[in-house]
Amino acid sequence: MTSTQTTSTRPAESGGHVKLTMAQALNRALRESMAADDSVVVFGEDVGALGGVFRITDGLTAEFGDTRCFDTPLAESGIVGMAIGMAMNGMRPVVEMQFDAFAYPAFEQITSHVAKMRNRTRGKVSLPMVIRIPYAGGIGGVEHHCDSSEAYYAHTPGLHVVTPSNAADAHRLLRAAIASPDPVVFMEPKKLYWTKEEVDLGAELPGIGRAMIRREGTDATLIAYGPSVPVALEAAEVAAQEGRSLQVVDLRSIVPFDDETVCAAVRSTGRAVVVAEAPGFASVASEIVARVTERCFHSLAAPVRRAVGFDIPFPAPKLEHLQLPGVDRVLDAVDDLQWDLS
């Protein structure tokens, strides 16, 4: 699963330390997976000649041919439904939903079939397929281009739901998702696509199902995933300047959920804030609060708080900064953790 398996001829990308955006890291993961396994096929809307509206599939048709990476008619249920059949018949499809809210026409195929096929056939039919969904806000997108839809998928048993917060994880987790025997909804924070960073492609990173501590801290724990991880890290930096030491946990995988890492982190500080863009009601953030409270109650010095989106439809671009939790909302929640009682 390391970069040594790639057949890429581009020397700058042959392994080791490279500077990559998340978009480039995802593209690399697709290329490596396709080179390593002929059954990996990539399809969706505009993924061929154009390389996808976010260029994640850039160059794949040229390199692997139009039977391995191809455009489909514009119909998301059709894309996912066809992927199910191909996965039933020996292929590993990786399909792209162009935007979060454009994936909803595929909702029935995802919830009634992708998620349930293994179970309804008593383990006889597995669906090794990946549904890539660019999601969440922060790019000034027009209506229907910015939903945080992760809770719909996380609520559905049978799906893995994974979301990277940086280029190295994007590479590692997408390769793991494609290799998984189970269907993975792979949610890509689109505001992080163009963030460039040094990536060690040879590094051994934890796989799907494991959270990671992004920053050590002793006073309180920020629990975040995907687009909210950089926000949590920035909040921790500001807090440090104010004399408060915040730990940051990056979930990486919403399903399976890493109770072990999350609970160990919260127990170590005794205080926690969950940071997420999605509307807070009945959300992944609610689930995290419930899990942490059930498991860590006697270690907690204050109720677990949330710094999340409001319960409103995603706003127009000029108002979205009011919806998305920023450093201030995170630190306000931290301030509410009953410090005067300790």
Partner: peptide
């Protein structure tokens, strides 16, 4: 649609 996928594969 699953039939289309099986056939296409």
């Amino acid at each position: 649609l699953h039939a289309v996928g099986v056939a296409h594969a």
